[in-house]
């Protein structure tokens, strides 16, 4: 049992070490199917949002064409692809929307559902979610 405890603690430490590792490669971008894949995911994502009455209300004043363009740029950039994100900061975009934790999670679920439909495996999804997770503080309750 003591050896199990040691194994568990070492595994935790390894997990910590890995969690802080930063990668600059474009393997995630490629795993998402590059620009074409990201465009398809974004298209599906907007569809998924359309099916969720709770979150669609936040898009009533949104220029969907611009949203799509900037979202593609952002995912491309965050996944290590050859793009610049030229949109506004997450704080600016979400100001005054008062997005709740629940709505945020529903949006994450919409994104993962979009990736499921596009055949992106769960481990690739986790890699992308890790890149996007730090934005949450600038999105909710603004």
């Amino acid at each position: 049992m003591k050896t199990l405890l040691i194994a568990v603690i070492s595994a935790l430490l390894v997990a910590c070490a890995n969690a802080t590792k930063t990668t600059q490669d474009d393997s995630l971008y490629r795993a998402l199917g590059e620009l074409e894949g990201i465009e398809s995911i974004t298209h599906r994502f907007i569809n998924e949002i359309g099916f969720n009455r709770e979150i669609i209300t936040h898009f009533s004043d949104t220029d969907l064409g611009r949203f799509k363009e900037k979202f593609i740029e952002q995912i491309c950039f965050e996944s290590g692809g050859p793009c610049e994100y030229t949109g506004d900061s997450m704080q600016q975009v979400h100001r005054g929307m008062d997005i709740t934790e629940g709505e945020f999670n529903a949006t994450v679920n919409a994104l993962t559902a979009a990736m499921d439909t596009e055949g992106v495996d769960k481990r690739t999804q986790n890699r992308l979610l890790k890149k996007l997770a730090p934005m949450r503080g600038d999105i909710i309750y603004q």
Partner: peptide
């Protein structure tokens, strides 16, 4: 819970 702790696998640790 660490998202993508290693090769896309999420890891949860508790103490």
């Amino acid at each position: 819970l660490w998202l993508d702790a290693f090769s896309g696998v999420n890891v949860l640790g508790n103490l």
